[in-house]
Computed example of a mutant assay.
Amino acid sequence: MRLDDVSSGEATMSLAFDGTVIVPAADPDDGERTAAALASHLTPTSSVVIVNVIEKAGGGIDKASVSQREEHADDIFERTDRILESTDATVETAVLYGTDVVERIFDEAEDRNADAVVFTPREGNRLAELLTGDVARRLVKEASIPVVALPQDDS
């Protein structure tokens, strides 16, 4: 990961991910937004791992069948691949399973010796964040490697 000053009369910053980044995506729209925001920061040496964590209930009843959630992950990967295929980066996808989404993301980052976890924050109201455990906030608070929240690409 590089943060460079690029000067051409005015001060600007350029962020480039030139190593391995883990990109969690919760749903197809989230994956697409994140891929769009990430694409311009990739280099030929970038390795992107798009992950979707299938949360297991840990002894309780799961919200949906594993096969339904794997199909959901396939939709996420298809939409992110469409955007990232125009870059020179290496792109992989992985379905992960675990009882704690944030813990599983950081375990994967460690297993792959990733340089950062990269995401775009999703809009949501405070009540929804409280009910879902606010994964974005936990990613930042419990970070074991750098976590980068990219602004959404509005172009």
Results as ranks from 00 to 15, higher is better:
Met1Ser: 09
Met1Asn: 04
Arg2Thr: 00
Arg2Met: 00
Leu3Cys: 00
Asp4Trp: 00
Ser7Gly: 09
Ser8Asp: 06
Ser8Thr: 05
Gly9Lys: 04
Gly9Asn: 09
Gly9Thr: 08
Glu10Arg: 14
Glu10Asn: 13
Ala11Leu: 15
Thr12Ile: 10
Thr12Ala: 10
Ala16Asn: 03
Ala16Ile: 05
Ala16Met: 05
Ala16Lys: 00
Ala16Tyr: 00
Phe17Asp: 01
Phe17Gln: 01
Asp18Ser: 06
Asp18Cys: 03
Asp18Met: 01
Gly19Phe: 09
Gly19Cys: 10
Thr20Pro: 09
Val21Asn: 04
Ile22Glu: 01
Pro24His: 07
Pro24Cys: 05
Pro24Trp: 11
Asp27Leu: 04
Pro28Tyr: 11
Asp30Thr: 05
Gly31Leu: 06
Gly31Ala: 07
Glu32Cys: 07
Glu32Ser: 11
Thr34Cys: 09
Ala35Trp: 03
Ala35Leu: 08
Ala35Asn: 04
Ala37Ile: 07
Leu38Trp: 10
Leu38Val: 03
Ala39Asp: 07
Ser40Val: 09
His41Arg: 00
His41Cys: 01
Thr43Gly: 02
Thr43Met: 01
Pro44His: 14
Pro44Gly: 14
Ser46Gly: 03
Ser46Asp: 06
Ser46Lys: 00
Ser47Tyr: 14
Val48Lys: 01
Val51Arg: 00
Val51Trp: 00
Asn52Lys: 08
Val53Ser: 08
Val53Cys: 07
Ile54His: 13
Ile54Trp: 10
Lys56Tyr: 01
Ala57His: 07
Ala57Trp: 04
Val66Ile: 15
Val66Met: 13
Ser67Gln: 12
Gln68Trp: 11
Gln68Lys: 09
Arg69Ser: 09
Arg69Gly: 08
Glu71Gly: 13
His72Thr: 08
Ala73Arg: 09
Ala73Glu: 05
Asp74Val: 11
Asp75His: 13
Asp75Pro: 02
Ile76Asp: 03
Phe77Asn: 01
Glu78Tyr: 02
Glu78Val: 09
Glu78His: 05
Arg79Ser: 11
Thr80Gly: 02
Asp81His: 14
Ile83Phe: 01
Leu84His: 06
Leu84Arg: 04
Glu85His: 12
Glu85Met: 10
Ser86Arg: 04
Asp88Lys: 08
Ala89Phe: 03
Ala89Leu: 12
Glu92Ala: 14
Ala94His: 08
Ala94Asn: 09
Val95Gly: 10
Gly98Ala: 12
Thr99Ser: 10
Asp100Asn: 15
Val101Arg: 01
Val102Asn: 02
Glu103Phe: 15
Arg104Ile: 13
Ile105Asp: 02
Ile105Thr: 04
Asp107Pro: 02
Asp107Lys: 15
Ala109Gln: 01
Asp111Leu: 07
Asn113Gly: 13
Ala114Cys: 04
Ala114Pro: 04
Ala114Ile: 05
Ala114Leu: 03
Asp115Leu: 02
Asp115His: 02
Phe119Ile: 13
Phe119Glu: 13
Thr120Gln: 03
Pro121Leu: 12
Arg122Cys: 09
Gly124Ser: 15
Asn125Thr: 13
Asn125Ser: 12
Ala128His: 05
Glu129Val: 07
Glu129Met: 15
Thr132Ile: 14
Gly133Arg: 04
Val135Gly: 06
Ala136Leu: 11
Arg137Asp: 14
Arg138Val: 14
Val140Pro: 02
Val140Gly: 08
Lys141Phe: 12
Ala143Ser: 12
Ala143Tyr: 02
Ser144Pro: 07
Val148Asn: 05
Val148His: 06
Val148Ile: 15
Ala149Val: 14
Leu150Gly: 03
Gln152Trp: 01
Asp153Asn: 14
